[in-house]
Nucleic acid binder design. Sequence first.
RNA 1: UGGGGUGUAGCCAAGUGGUAAGGCACCGGAUUUUGAUUCCGGCAUACGCAGGUUCGAAUCCUGCCACCCCAGCCA
Length: 564
Amino acid sequence: MIFSGKVEKPTVSNFIRNIIDTDLAQNKNQGRVATRFPPEPNGYLHIGHAKSICLNFGIAKDYQGTCNLRFDDTNPERESMEYVQSIKDDIAWLGYQWNALHFASDYFAQLYDYAIELIKQGKAYVDSLSGDEIRAYRGTLTKPGKESPYRDRPVEENLKLFEAMRAGEFEDAQHVLRAKIDMSSPNINMRDPILYRIRHVSHYRTGDQWCIYPMYDYTHCISDAIEDITHSLCTLEFEDNRALYDWVLDQLDVPGHPQQIEFARLNLEHTVMSKRILNRLVDEGHVSGWDDPRLPTISGLRRRGYTPESIRDFCERIGVTKKQGTIAMSVLENSIREDLDQRAPRRMAVLDPLRVVIENYPEAQTEMVTASNHPKNPQMGQRPLTFSGVIYIERSDFMETPAKKFFRLAPGREVRLRYAYYITCTDVIRDNEGEVIEIRCTYDPATKGGSSADGRKVKGTIHWVSADHSANAEIRLYDRLFLVSNPAAKADFLEHLNPQSRIVLTNCKVEQGLVDMEPEARFQFERQGYFCTDRQDHSRSHPVFNRTVTLRDTWAKIEKTSGS
RNA sequence: UGGGGUGUAGCCAAGUGGUAAGGCACCGGAUUUUGAUUCCGGCAUACGCAGGUUCGAAUCCUGCCACCCCAGCCA
């Protein structure tokens, strides 16, 4: 299938899809596939969540199934509607539509009823040990725990106590509801896990309706079952929780029993995904906010210029396994370059301008040259550019004493100005400090458009803008946030922040037409990289562009290896 | 001296007893009015290690090693 010039790639198999294929072959769940994405609304989504989103929504789509969005909002402490909204926005931006929208908090009443049922069955009890005591009684990794003295309270007493807990008759932490399983289980999750805790905190959705809140292990499985989820996908750290997930559902008469399958979460080199660290970076002002273009948050990537397509492509490429790995940033960069190469119109922008006066160009004359918007896609059209006798070129495109293999402008050398003329450098002008502030050139009038009838070749083609026909712009260059590949592993991760992760250039010269672009417009600035107008700060009077990613740069490699 | 997982190239990853896909990265070369793109070629006698079963093992068996997760009234 042809799709915007791109052949859609077949989805690669992974172990979860293999499980589903097997289930389907056996007509498990009557051939139905239902997944869900269950974030807690206590933070912003990042690229790691995107992996889970693409997995869950992608499976639903490919198997004609459904994927719900469910907010796992069982801990009122740090959840809010603001997070709910940002999560919904990010998922929609990524290009996914949820089948149904649910909140675990909508199940509070049902969850409470199921807890009563558990108590009646003698499988849950109210424990009145303190937090410290509960921890001590739990035992350790290698030593079994011991049973609470309250473990054998009669059902009636448990019922009365639990109702009193719900009625607000106790202080926080005075009692908890626990499952009665096995205090000597080698799986610590099964040592009478806490099901409910008392928390006199108002919830962003249920207000003060409840003062007891159900725990994750108890809530998640029942929520999945209520929604008739077939495959409950989560990350590896929940592997040990699966026994409890199954235990709870086995005790109760719930609509279904979803299968929990765990996969490895995403790790990316040179950045961090942990909520704790992300929070510090934002709170302490090391970045400008949750949508700082250096952050791996969805809103940060969006502001940086990443497309939803590129993020989906990335998630496709990295695969889904149970092996904990770390993906190189180059994989993400490759995904966005590949996408933008095809769809981003080309423009010329000079980031570090060097003034060039063309001495034999008739003074005050201007003329139009034609530039194509994409070298391979004529349908993207062309645009006229004004050429004149005073232009700006990139300072790095000129070397007074050229290094070996440098084939751009240098005294006595000829280069092509893209789409315009061949020019030859004749002189160098310096200021009092000896810094080159201008160069003088001559142009060959017979090379208009950038080619010569005599077949003479020039090795270099450089970009330019006309001094009087360009606009000033601010351009923000972004690079990896951290210098080390795994900053989260460093106790002093702040010491490893890349001081060059954001460089703001305020004296850039761009094609005039660029200032009128709407926010989030994406371009390739030829020979530089892909850029987008900043979502927040760009305006016609103050144009601001963010560098999404550089172009591949063979010259930089040559420079590096030749050590100059 | 507990339990649960995972080991295929620098980084990901297919592979499910028949002789190691693919991507990223890297290295060559061709084309090129972007040192971009594109294209061609190279890149694991080898699948954590050691044994065993088999005509045949990355795939099965045994033992060992390494790494990750679990002792919140977080999710």
